[in-house]
Amino acid sequence: MIEGFRLYARLMSAQIRSQMQYKMSFIMEFASTFMGMILEFASVVVLFIHMPALDGWTLAEVAFLYGSAEFAMALSQVITSGFDVFPETVRLGKFDSILIRPRNAMFQVFASELAIRRFGRAAQGLFVLGIAIWWMDVDWGVAEWSMLAVMILGGVVFFAGLFIIGATFSFWTVEGLEAMNILTYGGSTMVAYPMSIYAEWMRNVFIFIIPLAFVNYYPSLFLLNKVDPFGLPGFMPFLSLPLCSLVLLASLVFWHFGIKRYQSTGH
């Protein structure tokens, strides 16, 4: 286990060093994504010119949702970049060489890539989240700050599960599952705003079937002292990490199911 961590750290530092050879390229990609995504948030700010609050949520509170959703999703995307290039690996027949190495296949895919250029979007999320917390002038104790950390962790774990599930489809379709964008990009956009603005059927799907609302909405109700508009039990915010972990667990099960059915495309 410890050796695994050490190996992972080594591979990742090699990744970072090699990508940092093109430092200007990294800076440009980082800065352009960061500034470009800030403009997306600017559109939310513009909407608040026309209203005092969105369904009872102030701009700072919506920024809190928006920033935490973006940060968790984008960070997860960086961490799981190996799975992002996985469909390509399968298509080119390179997965065979992964299978014959004396290491867990999933570990190798996980450690095969770290797309640091994607940090721009994560930085944007963290920036908006930071401003929101500063602006709300919160008076949080250890419990609240821990809740925030657990909430972000839950979000990262949730989206990582989705990215892995999407990549696993390439065992069958060779292309990965593009429709997964609905849940990853669409999901993080959905929870950038309070769940109460959506139609009832959408809310029910993303609370009870896919635990998207637990990525940040329920923990935020607790952190921002809001009453649950759907009248669900008070322990809901604390289910965040367990439910998000279930998604990751499901992705691992699915991966093992897929790998057993893997047929090489040849080389």
Binding site: S32, L39, A42
Partner: peptide, 17 residues
């Protein structure tokens, strides 16, 4: 050499403007 970065910003900026 790094025009792609400009391009990405141009694309994201277009969504807004």
């Amino acid at each position: 050499v790094n025009a792609k970065g400009f391009g990405r910003f141009a694309w994201l900026a277009a969504a807004f403007f």
